[in-house]
């Protein structure tokens, strides 16, 4: 079954036509990379998948996006429920001004979980999944701001994983990090694939080719090409894709 199925998606910021007729199908437990030059609409598309663009005034979407077969833009959909299913990691680490533990527990608490043993188990599990456990196990009650940027980003990943989403959206999760942290995050994405479907925006070509199964190339609001990653990087159909991945522009 398709976990994400976007059909004929058009999106507008007021008058600006930011996405033009996007069609993407994503299978379960795959990593999808979205690449393309700055301003081409990658983040915009990603934020459509958990309806984050609802927060911006004057936006409009046509077409449909199905997650696990349900149209997430149907009128009776509860956005908070959707976001529990489709988690998100942002470009810059954005931990809450709370302890490390409470950062990860947050999603569980707003979900109405009050069972402290369950919360504790889940928090530890999530931090372990985010490959952060060894570094923070002694300071779970310290402020999240005491961590390095790379650690903070992995904490944000742990936070997203804690509520057991089906899909994890990542918007350039390593762009603000040093090479070592970046490598750790890439490794982590590879691990997470077993349990989650991941859609990752990146403008790092090597990263896309290393971590993803399928790659979509966006250009000026259009999805120029969407195919297996190996194919995109070795034998792209479109001239524009080839130009971009060989670094002739972007």
């Amino acid at each position: 079954m398709l976990i994400i199925d976007a059909k004929n998606v058009d999106f507008y910021y007021s008058d600006f036509h930011a996405l033009k007729n996007i069609n993407i199908e994503v299978e379960k437990n795959k990593v999808i990379a979205l690449i393309g030059p700055s301003g081409c609409g990658k983040s915009t598309f990603l934020r459509l998948l958990n309806r984050m663009n609802d927060l911006i005034d004057g936006t409009r979407m046509t077409g449909s996006i199905l997650v696990e077969g349900e149209n997430i833009y149907a009128p009776n959909v509860r956005v908070d429920e959707l976001r529990k299913k489709v988690g998100m990691v942002f470009q810059k680490p954005n931990p809450f001004p709370k302890t490390i533990f409470e950062n990860v527990a947050y999603g569980l608490r707003v979900n109405g979980n009050t069972d402290n043993t369950f919360i504790e188990e889940r928090v530890i599990e999530s931090i372990k999944s985010a490959a952060l456990w060894d570094e923070v196990k002694d300071k779970l009650n310290k402020s999240a701001f005491a961590l390095s940027g790379g650690q903070q980003q992995r904490l944000c990943i742990a936070r997203a994983l804690a509520i057991s989403p089906k899909v994890v959206l990542m918007d350039e999760p390593a762009s603000a990090l040093d090479p070592i942290s970046t490598a750790k995050i890439e490794e982590l994405i590879y691990e997470l694939k077993k349990d989650y479907t991941i859609v990752i925006v990146t403008h790092n070509m090597q990263q896309a080719s290393r971590v993803s199964d399928k790659t979509g190339y966006f250009y000026l609001g259009e999805l120029v090409e969407f195919d297996d990653t190996t194919k995109i990087f070795t034998n792209p159909k479109e001239y524009s894709t080839q130009n971009y991945i060989t670094g002739r522009f972007g």
Binding site: D80, G87, Y106, V110
Partner: peptide, 12 residues
């Protein structure tokens, strides 16, 4: 960013 983080975790 912090408000979005909260909303993205399914908080109302």
């Amino acid at each position: 960013a912090i408000k979005e983080a909260s909303l993205a975790l399914g908080a109302t």
